[in-house]
Design a binder for these strands. Structure first.
Lengths: 211, 211
DNA sequence: AAGGGATTGTGAAAAATCGCACAAGGTAGT
DNA sequence: ACTACCTTGTGCGATTTTTCACAATCCCTT
């Protein structure tokens, strides 16, 4: 495959381009888009758009722009979104619950992003056994088994900060490769796992600076 | 005030340092922390920690480290977290609802971060009038009035993508200065408003690359 | 009071990222 | 076919960010 070493800054912008392209595709499939328009709608300079697209091997036509559909497909390919991606959620409290419903809602009716929520886990006996939109909440004890059985390699972590590191280690053992961490703590990534920390409070505090 | 022009990369790391410092403070108030330990727990190199802290005018003692309490207070000061920060949420669907409960829960029992949720807004008549933990959901029509009445300048945006830009413009008129945007769209910031976009799907797609 | 050990603070180098500017290439209209 | 116009692709320089390395500083023990 033609995936060279693309720097992470670029990878981070690709989903944003993709989001814009999906919108454009709905309005005018078969059309083209310029780096100016794509940049405008993505919050990025045109030059940067071109640099990014060039880095992933996408080509446009001088004088015209980039073919929307082709570019979209290219991005989906790079981001592995042309195959089904199964995701599990660990921790079904306030946040985990909301995220679950959000994902189900967003990817049920919408385009075929192949992002599929397949399992929910919690360690609280009062929650285990409940259902969210037909997906049962499993006990965390059976995590490793379920992970290989259902074949998901990506996890959303929404447990309390104190438990997060322990859970990450379990994930590692179970062969999980990517984790989106909502727990308010920086996790040390075990070998072979990619972690992306995200914390609402951190974002709010960041913004607070600019008040 | 001694706030020079601190680059945003640094500002973004400050809340993370602060989060770590709060944890350290609980365990051992009055103690000091080295740039090594602080870096370790924040996912940042020691050198970078020192550069960052130096940039905001925080000083440590050679051979010892930084006084935890003093550093924490310094960070809170820089991030405006030593005054009360009132926040409103616009859009109380799945996500907005969850965020509301998350904030209330996290900042009620916890430390005095002075981050206070003071208002909820929606335009759906079926939702308007409901209550979440004692906070009524107001009609979006009265937004501007409520904003100046309650004095909040920061907003969490959790409306559908189609409405987001319109709402941001209303925010601008109402004197809002900072917005945490959960809508899956890049918003053009009106003059005087700082926007931070955050999108669960974008994060998931970013991670998907590394599978 | 003096020496040892640890850690800060920061210039200066290195690396990463970004943006400019323009030649090359393509289209559409005459 | 030719011209006018538009947009890509990219070398290169500017800027930002990170890392290195070490002198200066301070505590603690003896």
């Amino acid at each position: 495959m033609g995936k060279q070493n693309i720097p992470d800054v670029i990878i981070r912008r690709l989903p944003i381009y993709l989001r814009v392209l999906e919108g454009l595709y709905e309005d005018s499939p078969g059309d083209v888009v310029s780096s100016f328009e794509l940049g405008e709608k993505s919050g990025v300079t045109p030059a940067q758009v071109r640099k990014d697209l060039s880095a992933i091997g996408a080509v446009g036509k001088p004088g015209l722009g980039y073919n929307i559909e082709a570019l979209r497909d290219k991005l989906k390919n790079i981001l592995n979104l042309d195959k089904e991606i199964r995701v599990g959620i660990i921790g079904v409290g306030n946040l985990g619950h909301a995220v679950a419903r959000y994902i189900i809602q967003r990817y049920r009716t919408e385009r075929d992003y192949h992002l599929k929520l397949v399992a929910l886990f919690d360690s609280n006996p009062e929650i285990v056994g409940q259902c969210i939109n037909g997906i049962a909440i499993d006990d965390m004890k059976g995590f490793s088994g379920k992970a290989s059985e259902l074949g998901f390699r990506m996890v959303i972590l929404a447990v309390p900060a104190e438990e997060a590191q322990t859970v990450i280690n379990q994930c590692s053992t179970a062969g999980i490769e990517a984790v989106l961490n909502f727990a308010p703590i920086h996790l040390r990534a075990p070998r072979g796992i990619r972690i992306h920390d995200t914390d609402l409070s951190v974002d709010l505090m960041h913004l607070a600076y600019y008040l």
